[in-house]
Design a protein around this nucleic acid. Structure first.
Lengths: 232, 232
DNA sequence: CCAAAAGTGTTTAGGGTACACCCATGT
DNA sequence: ACATGGGTGTACCCTAAACACTTTTGG
């Protein structure tokens, strides 16, 4: 009730940061790309890749810019997670942070681009202590991704253009921390008509070889529950 | 570990607003509480209830403050929806807006408290043109609520302490814009053991009267998919 | 007695789950 | 030949969906 006719001129302004939770998949488990924080406070500690919002960009623009700085990738799948706004989350000055999570094909990631940040991939199960509330962000992103992936085929964003069914299964198992039955899993996947089986096989993982598949982009568009609830 | 730290002196700072999408249920359909915007630009147009973030509060604090200003209610179910950050969304000055949606028991809402804002309840199907990107926010909130409600019993936040099964069904039907089969619906609801049937009946809607029910808060806590997917 | 809404049970079909064996190949 | 991982089919169960009649009571 304190302002009867609020003018913008009397309002406070805040720093706005973007932090990116970058997921990748190494073929057997989901990983997280972290960097060494390059400035005080908490310089040198592990951190999510982040940056400040610039005057002429939207948050989505900023997130893409930051992601590209680190990975060299553009046009990556990305989603807003949440804003973190505890007044004391950054001890230097009050800063709001908008967290985004991104799913990238780990093989397209170009190491050399980002040497300044000393980035490293961590297993989702072995995330080190991070600056500020970044551990919390990671945990929330994991949960949201689990939820999302149970109703939409987003996890394919983590896979290369050609992938095998056992790879897909390993991906789901890694995210949900569970084993799935091979037969049921492949039946579900194939019945979605999301996958197109190739003639070639992948032969490094087994003697018999596993068929490569590609995504059927046509069906991929429909956000309908193509992948059934997965009975999580 | 922290040293006397530099401020982030070269970074820009931004206005941060909060906008609340306030849902209610009048017994037959879901409604939206809108206010007359009290200041320029777009003064007098319909708008979501909003306000600016204050220096010592988190966004959640601010959203609760704003909601209480308008409705007199505290401790309301509320959730962060998204941040809207198009650089040109507010023509006066760049403003980020964090949208929250809230579910309130429309009967607890106290008209008199909020006369300054000339609030009015609108049917979700007849939302007028709103300022800035508020129509977009409403649409997104509706979608998110639908999603949420299909896996968690959140919609009970819209109902009074005692309610009838036909009311619950009308609520779901209003949100999803579909009819459900009475028999299947009540079986699902009752099998969740979320509801406790009372001895009294509600008698204004029908001659026979419908049993009141209350929420079983014990089961309500488990976020597990108590309410089955509802086959949307 | 009639209108209006509330309450209740059965059948069927589809999808999820559990479960075990053969296949292809490199060593 | 054998070890390793890849691929496939069947039976059961549970849940969702479709569907219609009886009950209550105010007018």
């Amino acid at each position: 009730m304190k302002k009867s006719a609020p003018r913008y001129t009397h309002e406070h302004r805040y720093l706005v940061a973007i932090d990116c939770i970058i997921f990748g998949f190494d073929g057997s488990e989901i990983r997280l790309l972290l960097v060494h924080r390059g400035f005080e406070p908490e310089k040198g500690k592990w951190s999510l890749m982040g940056g400040f919002l610039q005057p002429k960009e939207s948050l989505e623009d900023a997130a893409n810019r930051i992601l590209q700085q680190l990975t060299g990738l553009k046009g990556v799948y990305m989603e807003q997670l949440s804003v973190f706004s505890d007044p004391r989350r950054d001890p230097v000055e009050r800063t709001l942070s908008v967290a985004f999570y991104a799913l990238i094909d780990i093989h397209r990631y170009e190491k050399q681009l980002s040497e300044n940040f000393h980035p490293e991939w961590f297993s989702l199960n072995e995330v080190p202590a991070l600056v500020f509330d970044h551990n919390h962000m990671v945990e929330l992103a994991r949960q949201k991704l689990m939820q999302r992936a149970s109703s939409e085929p987003v996890l394919f964003e983590l896979l290369p253009d050609r992938f095998t069914l056992p790879q897909v299964q390993a991906l789901y198992e890694s995210l949900y921390g569970r084993k799935f039955d091979k037969r049921n899993f492949s039946r579900k996947m194939l019945s979605s008509s999301l996958l197109i089986r190739q003639k070639e096989k992948e032969r490094t993982q087994s003697k018999k070889g596993a068929y490569f598949h590609t995504l059927n982009r046509r069906n991929h568009d429909r956000t309908q529950r193509i992948i059934p609830p997965l009975t999580l």
